[in-house]
Lab assay of single mutants.
Amino acid sequence: GEDLPLPPGWSVDWTMRGRKYYIDHNTNTTHWSHPLESGPSSG
């Protein structure tokens, strides 16, 4: 998808195989999909 801006506290990194993933430092979790690309989340 597009390179959307990341929310505060997020960063992007790549695996050893070159796969892009996103790090949420607020909750110390990692995600394969961009936080703003996922569907609407409630709460």
Results as ranks from 00 to 15, higher is better:
Asn26Ser: 09
Gly1Arg: 12
Pro5Cys: 00
His34Arg: 05
Arg19Trp: 11
Asn26Asp: 04
Asn26His: 07
His25Trp: 10
Gly9Met: 04
Ser41Glu: 11
Thr15Tyr: 03
Val12Asn: 02
Met16Asn: 15
Val12Gly: 03
Pro5Gly: 09
Thr15His: 04
Gly1Pro: 12
Thr27Met: 05
Trp14Met: 08
Ser38Phe: 11
Lys20Ser: 03
Ser33Gln: 14
Gly9Asp: 03
Ser42Ala: 14
Gly18Ser: 01
Pro7Ser: 01
Arg17Thr: 15
Leu36Ala: 09
Thr29Gln: 07
Leu4Ala: 09
Asn28Arg: 08
Ser42Phe: 12
Pro35Phe: 03
Pro8His: 08
Trp10Thr: 01
His34Lys: 04
Trp14Ser: 06
Ser38Tyr: 11
Asn26Cys: 10
Asn26Met: 07
Lys20Pro: 11
His25Asn: 07
Val12Arg: 05
Thr15Asn: 08
Trp14Glu: 07
Glu2Asn: 11
Asn28Tyr: 05
Gly9Arg: 02
Ile23Ser: 03
Lys20Phe: 04
Asp13Arg: 11
Trp14Asp: 04
Asn26Val: 07
Leu4Ile: 10
Pro40Phe: 13
Gly1Glu: 13
Arg19Gly: 07
Gly1Asn: 13
His34Thr: 03
Gly9Trp: 06
Trp14Gly: 03
His25Tyr: 06
Leu4Tyr: 09
Pro40Trp: 11
Ser42Pro: 11
Trp14Val: 11
Tyr22Trp: 09
Ser41Phe: 09
Val12Tyr: 09
Ile23Cys: 00
Asp3His: 10
Asp13Gln: 14
Gly1Ser: 14
Ser33Tyr: 14
Asp3Met: 10
Pro8Ala: 10
Gly18Ile: 03
Pro8Asn: 07
Gly1Gln: 12
Ser38Pro: 11
His34Ser: 05
Thr29Tyr: 02
Tyr21Glu: 02
Ser41Asn: 11
Tyr22Pro: 00
Ser42Leu: 12
Pro35Leu: 02
His25Gly: 07
Gly39Arg: 14
Ser11Tyr: 04
Asn28Gln: 09
Leu4Ser: 09
Ser42Gly: 13
Asp3Arg: 09
Met16Lys: 15
His31Arg: 06
Gly39Ser: 13
His25Arg: 06
Trp32Val: 04
Asn28Leu: 06
Thr30His: 11
Gly18Cys: 05
Gly43Thr: 11
Ser41Pro: 14
Arg19Thr: 14
Leu6Asp: 09
Asn28Ser: 07
His31Ser: 08
Ile23Trp: 06
Pro35Tyr: 02
Thr27Arg: 05
Gly18Glu: 03
Asn26Gln: 06
Ser11Asp: 06
Trp10Gly: 00
Ser38Gln: 13
Ser42Thr: 13
Pro7Gly: 01
Leu36Lys: 06
Leu6Pro: 14
Trp10Asn: 00
Thr27Ile: 01
Thr30Pro: 04
Arg17Pro: 07
Ser41Gln: 12
Pro35Asn: 02
Ser41Thr: 13
Gly1Ala: 11
Asp24Lys: 02
Ser38Trp: 11
Gly39Pro: 13
Thr29Phe: 03
Asn28Pro: 00
Glu37Asn: 10
Ser42Glu: 13
Asp24Met: 01
Glu37Thr: 11
Asn28Met: 09
His31Lys: 04
Leu6Ser: 01
Trp32Arg: 04
Pro7Arg: 01
Ser11Trp: 02
Asp3Asn: 10
Lys20His: 03
Pro5Trp: 09
Trp10Ser: 01
Pro7Ala: 02
Gly43Phe: 13
Glu2Pro: 12
Arg17Gln: 15
Leu36Asn: 08
Tyr22Val: 00
Leu36Pro: 05
Gly9Leu: 02
Arg19Leu: 12
Pro35Glu: 03
Ser38Lys: 13
Pro8Tyr: 08
His34Asp: 01
Leu6Asn: 01
Gly43Asp: 11
Pro35Ser: 03
Trp10Pro: 00
His31Phe: 07
Lys20Gly: 02
Gly9Cys: 02
Ser41Asp: 12
Ser42Tyr: 13
Tyr22Ala: 00
Asp24Asn: 10
Pro5Val: 08
Gly1Trp: 11
Tyr21Met: 05
Asn28Asp: 08
Ser38Val: 11
Leu4Glu: 10
Asn26Thr: 08
Ser33Met: 10
Ser38Asn: 11
Thr29Ser: 07
Gly18Asn: 05
Arg17Gly: 15
Thr15Gln: 02
Pro8Val: 07
Val12Gln: 07
Leu6Gly: 00
Asp13His: 15
Asn28Val: 04
Gly9Lys: 03
Leu36Thr: 06
Ser41Leu: 13
Glu2Ser: 12
Trp32Ser: 05
Leu4Lys: 10
Thr29Lys: 06
Gly9Asn: 07
Gly18Lys: 04
Pro40Leu: 12
Val12Phe: 10
Gly43Val: 12
Val12Ile: 12
Ser11Phe: 05
Ser33Thr: 14
Met16Ala: 15
Gly39Phe: 13
Trp14Tyr: 15
Glu2Phe: 11
Asp3Trp: 09
Val12Leu: 06
Thr30Met: 13
Lys20Asn: 01
Tyr22Phe: 08
Pro35Ala: 02
Gly1Lys: 12
Tyr21Pro: 00
Glu37Val: 14
Asp3Ser: 11
Trp32Met: 05
Asn26Tyr: 06
Ser11Thr: 14
Pro7Lys: 01
Met16Phe: 13
Pro5Arg: 09
Pro35Met: 01
Pro40Lys: 11
Tyr22Asp: 00
Thr27His: 05
Ser38Leu: 12
Thr30Ala: 10
Tyr22Gln: 00
Gly39Asp: 13
His25Glu: 06
Pro35Thr: 03
Pro5Leu: 09
Asn28Trp: 06
Thr27Gln: 05
Val12Lys: 05
Trp10Asp: 01
Leu36Gln: 06
Tyr22His: 01
Tyr22Gly: 00
Thr30Phe: 15
Pro5Gln: 08
Gly18Thr: 00
Val12Trp: 08
His31Tyr: 09
Trp10Leu: 00
Trp32Ala: 04
Thr15Leu: 02
Thr30Gly: 05
His25Leu: 07
Ile23His: 05
Pro8Ile: 08
Gly39Val: 12
Tyr21Trp: 03
Leu4Met: 09
Gly1Met: 11
Thr27Lys: 05
Glu37Gly: 11
Leu36Met: 10
Pro8Leu: 08
Glu37Ser: 14
Pro5Glu: 10
Asp24Tyr: 02
Pro7His: 00
Arg17Phe: 15
Lys20Leu: 08
His34Trp: 05
Trp32Glu: 04
Ile23Val: 09
Gly43His: 13
Asn28Ile: 02
Pro8Lys: 08
Pro40Arg: 08
Gly43Ser: 12
Tyr21Asn: 00
Thr29Trp: 02
Thr15Gly: 04
Glu37Trp: 12
Tyr22Glu: 00
Ser11Gln: 07
His34Val: 05
Thr15Asp: 15
Trp14Pro: 04
Asp24Gly: 00
Pro8Gly: 05
Trp10Ala: 00
Leu6Lys: 05
Asp24Ile: 01
Met16Leu: 14
Met16Val: 15
His31Met: 05
Pro8Phe: 08
Thr29Ile: 06
Gly1Ile: 13
Asp3Cys: 06
Gly18His: 04
Pro40Gly: 12
Thr27Ala: 03
Asn26Phe: 06
Thr27Ser: 07
Trp32His: 04
Glu37Phe: 11
Asp3Val: 10
His34Ala: 05
Arg19Ile: 15
Ser41Trp: 09
Gly18Trp: 05
Thr29Arg: 06
Thr15Ser: 07
Ser42Gln: 13
Ile23Leu: 06
Glu37Leu: 14
Gly43Gln: 12
Ile23Met: 06
Pro40Ile: 13
Arg19Phe: 14
Asp3Leu: 10
Leu4His: 08
His34Met: 05
Lys20Arg: 08
Leu4Val: 09
Glu37His: 11
Asp13Cys: 15
Val12Pro: 04
His34Phe: 06
Thr27Val: 01
Thr27Asn: 08
Arg17Tyr: 15
Trp32Phe: 08
Arg19Asp: 15
Pro35Lys: 02
Asp3Gln: 10
Thr27Gly: 03
Pro40Met: 14
Pro7Glu: 03
His25Thr: 07
Gly18Leu: 04
Asp3Lys: 09
Ser41Val: 11
Glu37Ile: 13
Gly18Val: 03
Ser42Asn: 13
Gly39Asn: 12
His34Leu: 08
Gly43Arg: 09
Thr15Ile: 03
Thr15Val: 02
Ser38Gly: 12
Pro35Trp: 03
Pro5Ile: 07
Gly39Leu: 13
Met16Tyr: 14
Thr27Trp: 03
Thr27Pro: 00
Met16Cys: 14
Arg19Tyr: 13
Ser38Glu: 10
Arg17Met: 15
Ser11Ala: 09
His34Gln: 03
Glu37Tyr: 11
Trp14Leu: 07
Ser38Ala: 14
Gly1His: 13
Ser11Met: 06
Gly43Pro: 13
Tyr22Asn: 01
Lys20Trp: 03
Ser33His: 15
Trp14Ile: 09
Arg17Glu: 15
His25Asp: 04
Tyr22Thr: 00
Leu36Arg: 07
Ile23Gly: 00
Asp24Val: 00
Tyr21Ala: 01
Ile23Lys: 06
Pro8Arg: 06
Gly18Arg: 03
Asp13Ile: 07
Gly18Ala: 02
Leu4Asp: 10
Pro35Gln: 02
His31Leu: 04
Trp32Tyr: 07
Asn28Phe: 05
Asp13Gly: 15
Ser33Asp: 10
Lys20Tyr: 03
Thr15Glu: 04
Gly1Tyr: 12
Thr30Ile: 15
Asp24Glu: 02
His31Pro: 00
